[in-house]
Design a protein around this nucleic acid. Structure first.
Lengths: 175, 175
DNA sequence: GACCTACCTGTCAATAGTGACATGTCGATG
DNA sequence: CATCGACATGTCACTATTGACAGGTAGGTC
C-alpha cells in the first residue's frame, strides 16, 4: 500500500488539506510516481487520522481541514522508506507502449518514436526551468523535495528522449 | 485497460501459452512496464479469445493452450499504439520512494540513495550482457522486442544510478 | 445582488488486481 | 515405481481504484 505513505510524505514536507494534496498529485507525483484522485485521498486521510498517523491542525473556510503528520506518522514513513521492498510495484503505461513498439511495422513505429522524442524533449525543457527555481535550496526538507524530484524527472525525460533517438536512427538505417 | 494490449503485444511477437506469458511478465515486462500475475492473465486470455482478438492455435501437453493474435487483434494493438493517451497511467513504487526521500534526515536519505545506486548499477550490468546477445538482430519483429526493451531498461538504470550519485554527492557536500 | 469560478469534501457502484487455495500432468531421478 | 519439481490452468474472496454523482462555500466581477 503506497498511497498512505505518499500522503505521509507530502504532509511531512508541509501540512495541507485534502484538496491541496489532490493538486499535488495532479501536478507532480501523479506524473511520474503515483496517481491518486480525490476519491481515494479523502477516505485515506480519514483512515490515517483514525490510526493516529496524521491529525487535523486547522479548520479553514469552506470546510477545509489542514492535516499534519504526527510523530507516529513520521516514524511510519521512515520505517517504510528504509525497508527495501522485495519487488516494488510497477505499472507504467507509457513504458509499456515503448516495449510493444516492435510489434508494429517499422513505418508505424517511427511515427510513435518521433512523437515520444518530441514530447520528452519538451518535458525536459519545462523541468529545466523548474530546476533553476530550486537550485539554491538545501536537499532535504521542504525545498529539497522539489529539487530531487525535478532533477529525477529531468534525467528520466532525457534518458527516454535519447533512447527514442537511438531507436529512430537504428530503424532508419535498416530501412 | 493496458493488460489486454500487453498480451496482444507479447503474442504478436510469437504465439505462446498463458503460462509462458506469465513468465514473460515475471522476467521482462513486469520489471519495468506492467505487472500481471497468472490470475489476471488467464481470464483475460479467455476474454480476448471470446472477442476474437486471439485464438488457440495448438493444444499441447498438460492442458497447455498456445494462443496467437488474429488479424483483428493485430489491428486493435496497432490502433492503440498509434493513439496517444491524454494521460498515461503511472504507478511506480520505486520512483515514489525516491520522491519521498527528502522527507528523511540526510543520514537516512544517504543510506537509501547508496542502496539505490548499488542496485541500479547491478541491474545495468546484467542488462549489458542481455544486450550483447540481441545486438545483431533487426529492430522490429521477434528479436527487436528484446533489443528495444533491453536498451530501454539499460538507459533507465543508468539514469537512476547517475541521479542517485548526484544526490549523494550533493547531500555529502551539505553535511 | 446575480453569477461564475475555484475551492472543498464526500458517497457509491463498478471495475481491476492480488493472494490464498485448488487441481492435475509430464519428465527425470533414485 | 515413488517422489519431486516444473509445467499448466483455474476459482474466489478481498482489497484497491476509478468514474459518476452529489452538495455546499468563499471571493470576485459585472
Amino acid at each position: 500500500m503506497s498511497l498512505p505513505h505518499a500522503l505521509l510524505g507530502l504532509l511531512s514536507v508541509h501540512p495541507r488539506s485534502g484538496y491541496e494534496l489532490t493538486k499535488a498529485f495532479e501536478r507532480d507525483l501523479g506524473r511520474y510516481a503515483w496517481q491518486a484522485g480525490h476519491t481515494s485521498i479523502y477516505p485515506e486521510l480519514n483512515r490515517l487520522a483514525e490510526a493516529g498517523l496524521v491529525e487535523v491542525t486547522h479548520e479553514g473556510a469552506r470546510g477545509a481541514r489542514t492535516y499534519a503528520v504526527t510523530p507516529a506518522g513520521r516514524e511510519e514513513l521512515r520505517t517504510w522508506l528504509l525497508t527495501p521492498p522485495k519487488q516494488a510495484k510497477v505499472r507504467n503505461e507509457q513504458v509499456l507502449r515503448m516495449f510493444l513498439l516492435s510489434a508494429l511495422e517499422p513505418a508505424d513505429a517511427l511515427v510513435v518514436l518521433r512523437r515520444i522524442a518530441e514530447a520528452t524533449e519538451q518535458g525536459a525543457t519545462e523541468l529545466r526551468t523548474v530546476r533553476e527555481e530550486h537550485a539554491a535550496a538545501p536537499m532535504t526538507g521542504a525545498e529539497g523535495f522539489g529539487q530531487l524530484a525535478a532533477e529525477f524527472g529531468l534525467r528520466q525525460y532525457e534518458a527516454v528522449r535519447d533512447w527514442a533517438r537511438w531507436a529512430i536512427e537504428r530503424l532508419e538505417r535498416e530501412a
